[in-house]
Design a protein around this nucleic acid. Structure first.
Length: 173
DNA sequence: ACCCCGATCGTA
DNA sequence: ACGATCGGGGTT
């Protein structure tokens, strides 16, 4: 597919990737939707990042090349989906918090746990290369929505950073 | 081995 | 605003 996002797209500063992912189309098997909300988590200087205290089995994929999935299990019952960003060796990722599903049904999945629950994304989908994978990837769209930046949700430290990006509701006329 | 807490969600 | 929930990551 020609308009699939390449490794070069993800291999950039995480905040830039998080902002530019808004409006892009995520495809997961038979399902597809528009990304509406993201958060940036950036390595060693970000206390909210899973990789803040170095490499562990769980966060290992964040240290690898950009364009891979990072899926983790949280609160004993939810999964969260991220896309790895930046140069290899530089642990960072974008959390996908919102998806406007358009196929095969129309449904706004707001919240990372709900998103993974509905798409049935689990740790089996961790460390997949989205630039190579058959049915799991992100593609270009003609949308470039307006968005706002806010503090990230549900974290203790790192609330000073405005690294959550949410598509603004379209004003009607 | 095991303890503690979380990148949540739904209800109040 | 807050409590339910509980697996497993990270440290002992």
């Amino acid at each position: 597919m020609a308009d699939r996002l390449s490794r070069d797209f993800f291999n950039r500063p995480t905040v830039t990737v998080a902002q530019e992912l808004l409006g892009k189309i995520m495809v997961f098997g038979p399902m597809a939707g528009v990304i509406t909300e993201t958060e940036a988590y950036i390595g060693q200087d970000d206390p909210a990042c899973h990789a803040f205290r170095g490499k562990t089995p769980r966060n290992a994929v964040m240290f690898g090349p950009a364009g891979y999935s990072y899926v983790y299990f949280i609160y004993g019952m939810y999964h969260c989906l991220n896309f790895v960003t930046e140069e290899e060796g530089q642990p960072a990722a974008v959390l996908i918090r919102g998806l406007m599903l358009i196929q095969p049904e129309q449904l706004h999945l707001n919240g990372p746990g709900k998103l993974c629950r509905h798409l049935k994304i689990t740790r089996e989908h961790n460390a997949l290369d989205l630039t190579e994978n058959e049915g799991f990837y992100v593609k270009e769209s003609s949308l470039s929505p307006l968005y706002e930046a806010t503090p990230r949700i549900g974290i203790r430290r790192g609330q000073d950073k405005l690294w959550r990006f949410v598509v603004k509701k379209k004003m009607h006329s």
